[in-house]
Design a protein around this nucleic acid. Structure first.
Lengths: 220, 220, 220, 220
DNA sequence: TATGAATGAGTATTCATTCAT
DNA sequence: AATGAATGAATACTCATTCAT
């Protein structure tokens, strides 16, 4: 009754459709796991719910991913993989240093905002003491593209005398991430405690403050 | 019907020791709950563990706090109460504006670092969509002392021509909180992804960057 | 509705009845486990079935015995404890050597026959490679009483010139156990393959053969 | 409807390889099932494990053997078939009665020792109450060869005045089987409880005791 | 006030079995 | 003849919560 091979596809190759189904099932499980773990945390997530969201049976989920922890690991890795993919699309190489910096802040905030599972997964993982992220071997390489780009922009900015020298790109990225992360991660408590609306206009205003803060910090 | 708690503290001498014990039990449960919820999140926390940490029986815990959600609410409230108590100690009134700002950043970071349950509880609550914090009536008052102080400092700074005008104290506090929150909240993932040590020296360095960022942002 | 404190007892002591219930629950679980494991083997036994047979809830069972393996271990140990208790009642000390030997064979066969869980537990444990019996610390002491008795009877028989010397008591006991064990352990297959009835008269006849075999073996 | 098996072996040359493969698959499944059921018992055996051991897919296994119980039945039958094949090799006809008896004990013990799946299958089947062995039609014939031989030896021994008359061959075989079965079937618990090594030398010694016991029992 | 004993309702995980190709 | 993909129905185990004393 369920997952009837959603539409079209029309059986172009005999083996392709079979193989594609397995692939599709794994993808569906991963997406469902990402949502469920992000929404409810590690202990709060339910395997039943993930299977149902994915439209597959629990045994299949176990067959592909092992157990809850391994599925959580895969979901966390997926969160990093997806932000890396997003970053690759961002092309700062050709832009003026200050504009590039503005775009990086905007992208970061927009990513955090539009993919709420990313922040949720990071919070969940940090609550668990980072025991899982340590097991993901290539997690360090994932952000390297961003840092490389950031280094180039900083260098260009310095040689064009619009940025001061001596700024560490990782330090800078942490500053930017911090400014973008906090108001989204803590939106609910900010609303309750400070009566901030934390809606689109408010976040846009916050983004402009963040951009100004970064640029003033980088100014010679 | 149950746990009428805070009323009638002024008991006669004869029942005083009982009252004292009751108070002590409640305190112990609250502290234990704060630790457990902060360490394991809402779904991950175990009532058994809280009772054992507190050294009381489970029926007693239920008698005082109702159920898990009510206990969680009490623990979240307690996190805010304790942070408020900490903030009272901070006295920025007599300091020069720039020094006061430096001290506020330092205090905020130190606060987050030394009371890890605070950040954990905020993350946990935001993961749950803020449904609990909204029920805590006086949560808005909690930060008012800080905002009042911050307003005074900003005004003083403006009149002394060391700060530019037009800075909203809440916006500024969110910036400061963001810079202090992120590296502590995300210490585990930062270690794994960016190889940051996130130890005392690293955090001290980060604090100096944050102070400089804030002061440059405020500069006329 | 269930286990309403089976009958009588009439609350003689205020604390005794409370304590006795816990004791009774543990006993009931152990008895039920012994039956279930003996009837269905380790993998075939169902925790649900044990809890139901015992008239207790599963959480209670887990509370008292840990998990399935620990419960199985306790049941296996109990099987040995009960056969030891049976052996203690047997008093061979005062009997003539040949009569004592006859009684020992009769007791052994009767024990195996009337407590079918004993043979079933041993078979189950040997199927599992003895991994559990090795963990029971005092299992060696359990049979020591029997071996001591057997040694005395052998010695007495030798000095009375009715038994030959040089018989090892453990070897002898293994022979006796073997003769008593096999027709009961393998009753079902013997019925099917050799058309033996394996009923009371048949077993009695078999017992007489076994007694004769042992006595001829011991004869000088 | 399914698994019509043994029929029509005399196929044409064209389909011979297919038939051969089918036969090979069935053989492999049966061997795997025998090992798995013997090692883990009925409930403990896993269909997945059997298919993997046999190197075939599960649907093929189901196609050939129906379901787990039917496969178990086939495996139990196979255990009897294989032991029967072994017994055919034994030729006691030409030996002196006492030597023949000694050889029978030795053969029986060696048989149990070298084909551990036989004892395991018998124990497993008896644990299940013999419900399966009853369904195997020709199981009675299996041991007939042995009993026939035993009858001849007993008769010869009686006429040569080395054995006493009146011994039932089935009774005698059960005695012999008992003495050989027990120390192998219960090797693990004997090691743990009585500290018997139950290794080659120990079993050889035990065999000699058994031979002596049988011969003394048969002596006129 | 205080708690040892007890459990209903989940929750992760497994396993025999079948379907589509 | 053969199998990769899939699942319904258990099965071991847990957890918030309550009862009896």
């Amino acid at each position: 009754m369920r997952h009837r091979c959603l539409s079209g596809e029309a059986a172009t190759a005999g083996t392709a459709s079979k193989k594609r189904d397995a692939q599709r099932s794994k993808r569906a499980i991963l997406d469902a796991a990402l949502s469920e773990f992000a929404e409810r945390g590690h202990a709060g997530a339910r395997i039943d719910a993930i299977a149902e969201r994915a439209g597959v049976s629990k045994p299949m989920l176990y067959n592909y991913f092992g157990d809850k922890d391994e599925l959580y690991t895969a979901a966390l890795r997926e969160a990093y993989v997806q932000i890396r993919a997003g970053e690759r699309e961002l092309d700062l190489a050709g832009k003026a240093p200050e504009a590039a910096m503005r775009d990086l802040v905007a992208f970061t905030m927009e990513h955090f905002r539009s993919k709420p599972w990313f922040i949720s997964m990071l919070n969940t993982e940090n609550l668990l003491g980072g025991q899982t992220v340590r097991k993901i071997k290539d997690v360090g390489e994932i952000q390297s593209h961003l840092i490389t780009m950031l280094t180039r922009i900083l260098n260009r900015g310095v040689s064009q005398r619009v940025f001061r020298p001596g700024i560490d790109p990782v330090d800078l990225y942490i500053m930017i991430a911090a400014l973008c992360y906090f108001p989204i991660s803590n939106a609910h408590t900010l609303r309750a405690v400070f009566r901030c609306p934390v809606d689109e206009p408010w976040l846009n205003r916050h983004r402009e403050h963040a951009v100004e803060m970064v640029l003033r910090y980088l100014a010679p």
